[in-house]
Every structure is written in C-alpha cells, then in structure tokens.
Amino acid sequence: MRLGLVLSEVGQGLRRNLSMVVSVVLVTFISLTFVGTAILLQSQITQMKTYWFDRAQVAVYFCTDFTTAGSCDQQAATDDQIAAVEAQLQSATLAPFIDAYYFEDQELAFQNFQDQFAGNAIASLVTPELMTEAFWVNLVDPEQSQILSDALAGLAGVESVVDQRSYLDQIFAILNASSLTAVGIAALMLVAAALLIATTIRLSAFSRRRELGIMRLVGASNRFIQTPFVLEGVVAALLGSLLAGGAVIAIVHFFVQGYLTQTLPGTSFVTVNDALIVAPVLLVAGGLLAAIASNVAISRYLRV
C-alpha cells in the first residue's frame, strides 16, 4: 500500500469537509471530556469509599449525666455497665463479627475533640465532663452493624449504637448520582459523536464517489479504499480526544488540585497522575470509536 497516496487522500478529505471535521472534533472533545470526568469521578468515589469506610466504625455511646436519650436518665453509665458491654463485645456471639474495638473515655474524647476543632472557639468551651464515652468498633464486614445494634442498644447505660456509614451513604449516594449522570451524558454524546463521524465519512465518500467507483472497477483492494476514510475519521476524532485529555488534566490541575484540595484539606482527591492515566484511555476510546463508525459508514461503498 502506498502510504504517501493514502495520506494525501486523507488530507484532501479533511480539507474538503472542513466544517464537518470541525464538528466531529468538537463533539468528540465534549463527549470524551464527559467520559473522562465520569471515570475520574468514579475513581474519586472509590478512593473516598475506601478511605472512609475503612475508618467508619460503629460507635456505642454511653450515657452521661446530661443525656436522656435511650435508656439514659441523666445518669452517667457506671463502670459495671461499661464492663457488661465490653463482655458482650468479647462474647462468642459478637466476637467473630468484630475486627477491633477500643474504648474512648472522656479524656481521650476531649483530646480528639480539641484536635479536631483546634483554633475553633468551641474548643475552649468544652470540658472533659461534657464528653461522651464510647466503644469504637471496627466490624469484619461493615455491612453487619445491625447485629451490634440489636445486641447492645437495649443494654443499661447505653445511649445509642450508631453506624457512621449511614452518614457516608448519603454523601456517596449524591456522588454516585452525579457520576451516573455524567456517564449517561457521556453515553448520549458518544452516540452523537459516532453518528456524526459516520455522516461525515459518508459525505466524504459521496464527494469522492467517482474515484470510489473507478477504484472498485479496477480492483483496488477494500482495505486500500477504506483506509483513507477510516483515517480521516480517526484523525478528526483523535484531535477531539487530545483536547478532551487536555481538558480533563486541566480540570484536575486547576479545579480539583488548585481549588478543592485547598478548600477541603484532609480529603484525598484524584491527582494529575490519575488524569494522566485517563487521557490515553480517552485517546484510545476516541480512535476506536471513529475507526468503527467510519468503517461501518464506508462499508456500504465496498459491497460487491
């Protein structure tokens, strides 16, 4: 196959259909940016889930002198009551479900509070006596918090059993929904991109139908006839993919790293490195999409 001839055909095709090619570039650009964003959002969610769910625990809060909830009656839990709960945690029924647990007494709780709200006015208002004592329990399977709740919630001196994952679940539900929205938009845009590429290639083939007819007549191989058109679609789509890759990297660099990380320190976010992995994926996806779409579009002209 004569590479020079093929490339000059590709160049001609791109120039002849400039406005269509520009629209292909733009549509692949936007659709793949959505795809890239969706991928990064998914990886962000996974990353946060691992981070938070690993830390998420079931808290068994004890009564203080000020609480009235649960079985509390403004009576702090006694040492016996706490020991009874611990005995339950170590019992044959519960122990297999528990990975680890520790007791947070008022001193420790106070310390943690001071650390968490360092520099905040509220930190100076609390005293150790106001803090709630608790067992922090890590489960082997975080899904099974109900077992703990059933076993411990009714015991004397226990205020409540709280699975912290219930807070996280709401946040992740929102994040998941937005990620799914991005995926949905990306899918629709990809369909549009594929159709647009097919239409562009069909137009290009139509404007070259004379050459195509003669090529078929004199026995140019299907691959020879196909290649310039497929390359035409692929080149246009790759331009769009490059832009999308750049956009994704820019979003992570300027928005996520530049803004979100500053605003929400302590949360781990996707990095430019993640974006650098996604960009080639977009490139391959764009190229593949265009190759398939143009192949299908041109095959009509190759039927014998």
Binding site: L217, V218, G219, A220, S221, N222, L302, V304
Partner: peptide
C-alpha cells in the same frame, strides 16, 4: 469471496 473480488477484477478492463 468479496475480499478477493478486487484481485479478480485486476484481470479485467472495462
């Protein structure tokens, strides 16, 4: 086969 048709046509002039 339709893949071979082009090569067959190289033996014909039209």
């Amino acid at each position: 086969s339709s893949r071979k048709v082009p090569y067959f046509r190289r033996n014909l002039g039209v």
